[in-house]
């Protein structure tokens, strides 16, 4: 399982920028015939990469760009976006990277989550950002896409069920709009444990 502290990265072969660099020196050491044949096969390999029409800057650590419309200018400027979204499939017709399939998981050992940390993670825009869709205590601008989480503890859900719901809710409902936080590596194992502890603390 993916652990905390790591940036999410795609799992497919040759999807990390560094990997392509590993292939080229090898190409030059092999015989010309092999080089040619490999070249013909390469498009299939390239296809697993970020598509060419994605708005990214490979020179910026967070890759993803956001547009800046400058008054009285014929150029569209772009600035680095606050989060790197480049690792997941886009709408591009040229994007050959697969969506992560739904994953059934089981919570191992005692929960050992920290509800205070869980609340922080639930609020963070780059992590849970739960109040975008759910009502949470102390949040004035909660959304109502999902059910209200006020008094959630009173539902007496098992920790393991909540862990699965946050890790990958598609297993419970294929039509859900909730992100698969674990499968898509938005939250680590420990972070999901913290959020489950927070949910189980909501009076």
């Amino acid at each position: 399982m993916h652990q905390r502290g790591k940036e999410p990265r795609p799992t497919g072969f040759l999807t990390a920028p560094g990997m392509t660099g590993l292939v080229f020196p090898r190409l030059f050491r092999t015989k010309p015939g092999a080089w040619l044949v490999s070249l013909l096969l390469l498009p299939g390999v390239w296809a697993a990469e970020l598509p060419p029409d994605a708005a990214v800057d490979r020179g910026v650590p967070t890759m993803t760009l956001t547009p800046q419309v400058v008054v009285h200018s014929g150029r569209l400027e772009w600035e680095p976006f606050s989060r790197d979204l480049s690792a997941w499939p886009t709408l591009s017709h040229a994007d050959r990277r697969s969506t992560e399939k739904p994953r059934r998981v089981s919570l191992t050992g005692p929960l050992e989550g920290d509800a205070t940390r869980g609340r922080e993670l639930a609020m963070r825009r780059d992590k849970g950002f739960c109040m975008l869709c759910h009502q949470l205590p102390g949040e004035q601008w909660s959304g109502n896409f999902g059910i209200s989480l006020l008094g959630y503890r009173l539902n007496h859900h098992a920790d393991a069920d909540l862990y699965q719901q946050v890790f990958d809710p598609r297993v419970n409902n294929p039509h859900t709009a909730m992100p698969p936080y674990g499968t898509n590596r938005i939250l680590s194992d420990q972070e999901i444990r913290d959020i489950v502890a927070y949910l189980q603390s909501l009076e």
């Binding site: 497919g12 072969f13 040759l14 090898r26 092999t30 015989k31 015939g33 092999a34 044949v37 490999s38 096969l41 390469l42 498009p43 299939g44 390999v45 296809a47 697993a48 499939p89 994007d95 050959r96 990277r97 697969s98 969506t99 399939k101 598609r170």
Partner: peptide, 24 residues
Amino acid sequence: RSLLFVLLCLGVATPQAESMPYRE
């Protein structure tokens, strides 16, 4: 070694070139 390399490329490239990516 070169034959191995081509086979390696084939093994990696073919599935991705032919099959559609998984989408929901």
